[in-house]
Computed example of a mutant assay.
Amino acid sequence: MRRVFSALAVTGCLVTGFPALTFAQSLPGLTLFSGVKSENQLPFRLDFGGQANSWDRYILRIPASKMKLAVAQFAITYPNYYRGTFDPKSVEVRVKGKSLPLSEVKWNKEARVIEIFPQEPVPAGSKVELVLSNVQNPAFGGMYYFNCQILSPGDVPLLRYLGSWVLSIT
């Protein structure tokens, strides 16, 4: 009986001693040879691990330091070799953890751009998360550069580059 209790105790210690595995993927601390300057890399998280040919949720973050102007429109562009799909009805803009009401979300497959229009401009200096749910990852893995551009209210109608998310689908 003592051996059984000893074995259970040792097994319990081993199981609880290992850190829990997480399936979410996020921006690595150091990216070599990405072609994107480190100051232009934006943080992100892939909630379900970024597995090829599976469903995922992309949480694309924009730090407050990058939000120097108020934003009336976000535009996310992606490369022509990205063959995933997006659900425009499952897009959110979060500021301080709260979802903002959106007036429209457009996905232009031919131009490879997702345009997000909040009902009210997002204030300058806000920490923003663009949440793309119900994303079907491409069938083949690879490195994909998603670029963030913004349009400020009353601005000349030209999108300004904020940075890039370097996503890796495995």
Rank of each mutant, 00 (worst) to 15 (best):
R2Y: 10
R3T: 15
V4H: 10
F5P: 08
F5R: 09
S6N: 11
L8V: 10
C13E: 05
G17H: 09
F18Q: 02
F23Q: 11
F23N: 11
S26V: 02
P28F: 02
P28I: 04
G29D: 07
L30Y: 03
L32T: 13
L32H: 03
F33W: 00
F33G: 11
V36C: 04
K37G: 09
N40A: 10
Q41F: 00
L42E: 09
L42H: 05
F44S: 06
R45S: 13
L46V: 06
G50Y: 01
A52G: 10
S54V: 00
S54Y: 01
S54A: 10
R57S: 15
I59P: 01
P63I: 03
M67R: 02
M67I: 14
K68G: 02
L69M: 13
A72G: 14
A72E: 14
Q73G: 02
Q73Y: 01
F74P: 05
Y78D: 08
P79C: 07
Y81H: 12
Y81D: 15
F86E: 08
D87K: 08
P88E: 01
K89Q: 15
K89H: 09
V91Y: 04
V91F: 01
E92W: 00
V93P: 13
V93W: 03
K96G: 13
S99M: 08
L102G: 13
L102H: 08
S103A: 11
K106T: 13
W107I: 14
N108S: 11
K109N: 08
V113P: 07
V113C: 12
E115G: 01
E115Q: 13
E115I: 14
E115H: 02
E115V: 14
P121H: 00
P123A: 12
A124P: 09
K127E: 15
E129S: 10
V131F: 01
L132V: 04
Q136V: 05
Q136E: 10
P138L: 01
F146T: 05
F146W: 06
C148Y: 02
I150C: 12
P157S: 06
L158V: 15
L158A: 15
L159C: 12
Y161P: 14
L162Q: 12
